[in-house]
Design a protein around this nucleic acid. Structure first.
Lengths: 194, 194
DNA sequence: TCTTGTTTATAACAATTGTCATAGCCTACA
DNA sequence: TGTAGGCTATGACAATTGTTATAAACAAGA
């Protein structure tokens, strides 16, 4: 295994996730992904013999893993802290990219799979959403929120964050994030205390 | 002016909006848009001399117009009724398309404009979001919600709905919409009554 | 050193993309 | 009837797409 910094394979996956988060799924070509990772095109099909579908699926999972790790860690300080960290994570991506990048999981979710077949990448996206919701719902329940309300709130939080990030990109402003953050924070606080 | 049902121009715009809502911006080609509208490719560049950029921009505005019209009408019965109608509108699109279609405005928002230039379509998307937020915030204020809270709530609602539609597509289920609907409804009710 | 398996390097393929040009049709008005 | 202008039809262009094939370079173990 040849290493140069991270492995070439990992660089390709991470680069694909970044490019998908900017341009969307279909506008991200394997050639440019390889170039972006300074890996040759041949290597891409060596590492991902099932082609683009496989690469995209792994990119979604990759994004899911590190965001989930971050969310789980921050939730140890309670649901409000977890929410704020989750928001901060996406805010950084949006701001650092000058409003050009967002969430690759969302990007994959809104591009129709090719005719007839169900997409592995889409299933991976659903899993990531479910993981986030699960972590948030668990934390809320641990802080006294009844199960059904916790599940509803978790879904609302994930959906609102994803939608807000997209709105920030369109408006080229972080104001939507500020507003959503404020409302979600008071909402969680009320649920936990009530 | 040759009419066949709606004008060819309008058919092209509406078809483009539908295709973008399924496949995303970059995967929607002008050729297929024309075919989908049963219009010749030549006509597309006749009606939209500025090319794809213009067509996409008009598709976003088109979507914005009829959703805004619907939202404004339903809000006359109060903010909760408006919310429910807004949710029902998107639910119908998601369900009728077997979880393949979503919101074209969101789709345009998350695909990076070509290097350096700012995209007219992206600006149109921002306008649509702002229009929805404005209508919701106005209604909330009219029902006694203080201005800042109304604005925050309006942003949260739009973001949550957009995010939820995407989650429904990934999961191939309307459950996210059910959960979000429930939470947003009680949230609005509390704000209006409080 | 020789050999085996991983990685890279190139080239080619059919298909599709946005865009443009040009020639024809076809309707409406004089 | 004729003529102008909106619309259609068709074809071409360079570029890019996903994918496959093939051969060279390379690494490490025998």
């Amino acid at each position: 295994m040849t290493e140069s910094g991270a492995s070439a394979r990992e660089r390709i996956v991470a680069g694909a996730a970044d490019m998908i988060s900017r341009r969307g799924l279909n506008a991200t070509s394997i050639r440019e992904t390889a170039k972006h990772a300074r890996a040759p095109l041949g290597s891409t099909y060596h590492y991902f013999p099932e082609g683009k579908q496989q690469l995209v699926t792994e990119a979604v999972r990759y994004t899911g893993e590190w965001t989930t790790r971050s969310l789980r860690k921050e939730l140890q300080a309670g649901p409000v802290a977890g929410l704020l960290a989750f928001l901060a994570l996406w805010r950084k991506i949006v701001v650092d990219s000058d409003f050009r990048a967002g969430c690759p999981v969302l990007a994959v979710s809104i591009e129709e799979p090719a005719a007839g077949q169900t997409s592995a990448a889409l299933a991976a996206a659903a899993d990531v959403f479910a993981a986030w919701e699960g972590l948030l719902a668990d934390s809320l329940r641990e802080h006294g929120v009844e199960p059904e309300r916790a599940a509803q709130l978790a879904t609302l939080i994930v959906a609102a964050v994803e939608g807000t990030v997209a709105m920030c990109r369109a408006k080229r402003s972080t104001e939507p994030l500020d507003r959503t953050a404020e409302q979600l924070r008071t909402l969680i606080r009320a649920a936990v205390e009530g």
